[in-house]
């Protein structure tokens, strides 16, 4: 990784994002502030995308295996989701949240440099690998934002300033995130059939992925019938995200994950 110095790239990206955010933050006072800000955040995102592409070519396999590599992808997807939602709803805090989280992921990667290990076990070398992982990461990014809405809502309730309309923002994110979750689960099943002979084996990661899916399914159906029970809906959404976090990170610490095909940490 000598030609591609990750730290430099990460610092450039972070700087571009921060400058962009500052312009957007002060867009009332600065002429064309929003436009300039958008240009900076988009350029920052493009820089990190190009880095990922070069890295992919360099290590000769999709960089999606180690935790550090997944963090890199979050640093790609979060800004994309943030920028798109910002364009759609004009909520600045959405953008700042996703950029902030992406910066956090990049900083973790700077502090914990990763060896880009070329080795990819044979079962992972499949055309399903890339769509399976990308769909999941995009889904987690969307559902992550929806969980911020729920946390924000629960916080506002404390101060009696909560407006039920806030939840409508979350609904759209959940619908999009949930449909990608469904795709991730199904792609995983189709891949498992090709690689391991069966589409569903109740492997711990599969079990938790199903739980995550069921939790959001519950949210969707509860919301559909009970539009006005917003507090319960907020709690379901918050709990669903906890299940998602266990599935994503916590699984490695659970007693059940003895020989899951999804734990690559050796």
């Amino acid at each position: 990784m000598d030609i591609l110095n990750f730290n430099n790239i990460a610092f450039i990206t972070i700087a571009l994002w921060i400058i962009g955010s500052l312009f957007i933050l002060g867009d009332q006072k600065i002429k064309n502030g929003r436009l300039i800000g958008n240009l900076f955040t988009i350029t920052g995102t493009l820089v990190i995308i190009v880095f990922v592409i070069i890295l992919w070519i360099e290590i000769d396999r999709p960089p999606m295996r180690t935790i550090g590599e997944t963090r890199l992808w979050y640093a790609v997807f979060l800004p994309i989701v943030g920028i798109l939602t910002f364009f759609k709803w004009k909520y600045k805090w959405f953008l700042f949240y996703s950029l902030g989280l992406a910066i956090l992921f990049l900083i973790i990667n700077i502090l914990k440099p990763e060896n880009f290990d070329k080795v990819l076990m044979p079962a992972l070398q499949s055309p399903w690998f890339v769509p399976h992982v990308i769909v999941y990461m995009l889904s987690y990014a969307l559902l992550g934002v929806s969980s911020v809405v729920s946390a924000w809502g629960l916080y506002l309730i404390k101060f009696k300033t909560f407006k039920p309309k806030l939840l409508n923002k979350a609904d759209n994110l959940v619908y999009m995130g949930f449909s990608l979750l469904t795709l991730g689960l199904l792609f995983g099943a189709l891949w498992a059939k090709e690689a391991w002979g069966h589409y569903w084996t109740w492997d711990p990661k599969e079990t938790w992925a199903l739980l995550t899916w069921l939790s959001y399914l519950l949210y969707i159906h509860f919301r559909f019938r009970h539009k006005h029970k917003t507090v319960t809906a907020l709690w379901i959404l918050a709990l669903a995200f906890i299940v998602l976090l266990i599935c994503w990170i916590g699984i490695n610490y659970l007693a059940v994950s003895g020989n899951s095909v999804h734990t690559y940490t050796s």
Binding site: F178, L180, T182, L186
Partner: peptide
């Protein structure tokens, strides 16, 4: 069934809850 679910999910992603 999986194929139907994939179609349903793609549709759901496209439409959102509009």
């Amino acid at each position: 069934g999986i194929f139907m679910l994939i179609v349903g999910a793609l549709y759901m992603f496209w439409i959102g809850n509009k």
